[in-house]
Simulated assay, not measured.
Amino acid sequence: MSNDTALRGRTALVTGATSGIGKAVARNLARQGAEVVLHGRDRDRGEALVKELAAEGGDVRFIAADLTDAEDTLRLAAEAGEIDILVNSAGVYEFAPTPATDSDAFDRHFAVNARAPFLLVGALAPGMVRREYGSIVLVGSSAAHRPAPVGSAYGASKAAAELLTRHWATEFGASGIRVNTVSPGPVRTEGTVAMLGDNAEVMNRTNVRGKVGEPEESAEIVSFLAGPASSYVNGAVLIADGGELSALPA
């Protein structure tokens, strides 16, 4: 894991920072010298993470917000202040068939996976433009481009995020703002293991290397896209799925 000071003097906001990929991203950015604003829904988990990362030398603080609520999302942006790096990692994923997905579930996917990044970029990108510096990274999903018999609302919301990435790269690129997405395949997180239960090991069979992704692997890519080493990368959707299988093995 990176331990340099490439991001010293920069402030990052990481949504969904209390678990999974978001937590690994927050740790990486803090270790590279960034001041990190952690976001999550659970204040107790957030404060525990603040203590954990502070003990490692990180400069971090936590803001609780509900990204299904537009006003609360805008409050998060206001309380975060001037942000140089925005990582939209928070996500909702419910892999249900279309007939079993009601309007509330559909709206929840788009509220968190697409609308929240839209509102945060709308609130925070103007400050980046004034400073002529900024990096915005979205955590997408292979579900945006690999159809499955379940999870249509999730896949559609992540496809929307990919398209927003390309629009924003065009809209803000001339002002020195880069916008990119990392698109992981299945990743072993608390959420995916809880959802799959005893079937969690099936994730190992989803790519050619035969091993499910780990949060730290995706976080390293996010950190690359967020930092100066990727200065010539803008509007990209970086696929990180371990190598696509044409079909799952029997």
Rank of each mutant, 00 (worst) to 15 (best):
A125V: 12
L196F: 10
D44F: 09
R205S: 13
N88E: 08
H109K: 06
L120G: 07
T5P: 04
D42F: 14
A116Q: 03
K211L: 12
A100M: 13
P147V: 00
A24R: 13
S218P: 00
G22E: 03
L7S: 06
A111V: 03
T192R: 14
G197R: 14
V60I: 09
R41N: 06
S175R: 13
P147E: 04
M203K: 14
A144L: 06
I83T: 00
N199C: 00
A105C: 05
A30W: 02
V121M: 08
E52V: 00
A153W: 02
N234Q: 10
E220L: 09
L53N: 05
F95R: 15
I21Y: 04
E82F: 11
T206L: 10
D102L: 10
P126K: 09
P149H: 04
R131G: 02
K51N: 10
P184N: 02
V14S: 05
M203I: 02
V25P: 02
A96W: 15
G122H: 14
A30F: 10
L53F: 12
G22K: 12
S175M: 04
F110H: 15
P126I: 01
A236P: 01
V150D: 03
T170K: 15
R178F: 12
Y232C: 03
A159I: 08
S183E: 10
A143F: 05
D69R: 09
T192Y: 03
G22F: 00
A34I: 09
A159S: 14
R43E: 09
A169W: 08
A77I: 08
G57D: 03
D42Q: 11
V129K: 14
E94F: 11
D4H: 13
D84I: 15
K158V: 04
E171L: 10
L238M: 12
A247I: 02
G33V: 04
G40H: 04
G176W: 01
L245E: 02
T189P: 05
D104H: 14
A174C: 05
V50L: 06
G155L: 05
I63R: 06
V202N: 06
V14K: 01
I21F: 09
T5M: 13
A100Q: 12
A65I: 11
H167M: 08
A161D: 06
V222I: 15
V179W: 14
D4I: 00
L225C: 09
S223K: 10
V139Q: 01
A156E: 07
F95Q: 11
S2C: 03
A54H: 15
L13S: 07
V139F: 15
A240L: 05
A24D: 03
R43A: 13
P149G: 05
G58R: 12
D69S: 11
E201M: 14
D241C: 12
S135R: 04
L238A: 09
M128C: 10
P147G: 11
G16Y: 05
E132P: 01
N88S: 00
E214Y: 05
R108V: 03
T18W: 06
S103F: 08
G46H: 13
V137C: 02
P215Y: 05
L49E: 10
A236Q: 14
M128Y: 03
T18D: 01
I63M: 06
